[in-house]
């Protein structure tokens, strides 16, 4: 780059960028401070305040968090698994087949990019009730499993793969399914990773729809469990609530810190298309 700010300009910008960054991270720092210190230090900052894990112990014992963790893990894995299969098949159809009604169907798929499932929560609740699966993990996952975003993303990717590769595989006697699995899927690996990260972080964090369809410990994901815990079980012991909040977020946050580059690149890859 040739076009650069002057030295004072750069210094000013650097300072501004760092002030913003500190502002941005401060709430989290504060949450960690509260969670890792005894209650009396919740709002008192003393460098030598004793560290403690007691808040985490108390939170863990006060609500069935292990069950919530289990539910969320199963939920996220189930949604991602089904999404990958359904979106791959649909994207392949859109990218490589000419069939009657294809363009209309594609527009109908894109409708979901505008009208996300939570907007339709009242009607979808009825459907789940009619299917007799209220308060189960599949009920939380079903509206999201045919992801328009995933179909769109994979279709764009499949379209960039040269059809000569497919022709070569066909000459060697591969059938349509084999071609999909041996040619298309391997070449789209980075896009699959991107989609997986976006999907996992979305569904780990999703709240409103799970809140509506669940009403027992057996199906509640972490987010809803956390909400029930902090609004009912606790008075206003912020130290424990903050500890619970950090605890439920930790797996995703740790994964993010470890694979920061992949996360950011995945979100970028998903955003460009």
């Amino acid at each position: 780059m040739v076009l650069q700010p002057s030295r004072t300009g750069l210094a000013l910008e650097t300072a501004a960028a760092w002030v913003l960054a500190v502002l941005w991270i401060l709430p989290l720092f504060y949450a960690f401070w509260t969670a890792f210190h005894p209650t009396e230090f919740a709002t008192r900052f003393q460098l030598l305040a004793p560290l403690s894990l007691q808040n985490f112990r108390n939170a863990w014992d006060a609500a069935p968090f292990s069950r919530y963790f289990f539910n969320t893990t199963v939920l996220v894995a189930m949604i991602l698994g089904v999404q990958l299969v359904l979106c791959t098949l649909a994207a392949y159809a859109f990218a490589r087949y000419t069939f009657w009604g294809r363009d209309v169907m594609f527009i109908l798929v894109l409708v979901q990019l505008m009208i996300k499932p939570e907007v339709l929560l009242v009607e979808n609740y009825r459907t789940m009730s009619a299917l007799g699966i209220l308060d189960t993990l599949p009920a939380i996952g079903l509206p999201y499993m045919a992801s328009a975003f995933g179909i769109f993303l994979l279709r764009q990717t499949f379209k960039t793969i040269p059809s000569e590769l497919e022709d070569a595989a066909r000459v060697e006697g591969a059938n349509a399914l084999q071609i999909l699995l041996k040619v298309y899927v391997p070449l789209a690996k980075p896009v699959y990773l991107a989609f997986a990260l976006v999907s996992v972080s979305f569904h780990w964090n999703n709240f409103l729809w799970p809140l509506v369809v669940t009403n027992s410990v057996h199906s509640r994901p972490l987010t809803v469990g956390l909400q029930v815990f902090s609004s009912v079980d606790q008075g206003i012991d912020w130290s424990i609530i903050t500890a619970a909040t950090i605890m439920t977020t930790a797996p995703l946050l740790i994964a993010f810190l470890l694979f920061q580059r992949q996360f950011v690149q995945s979100f970028m890859r998903a955003g460009i298309r």
């Binding site: 299969v85 649909a90 159809a93 069939f99 169907m105 339709l120 459907t127 045919a146 328009a148």
Partner: peptide
Amino acid sequence: GWLLLLPAAVLLVLFT
């Protein structure tokens, strides 16, 4: 084409 699309289409129709 339709067979590949069908599973996703069913869920989309049902929930969107």
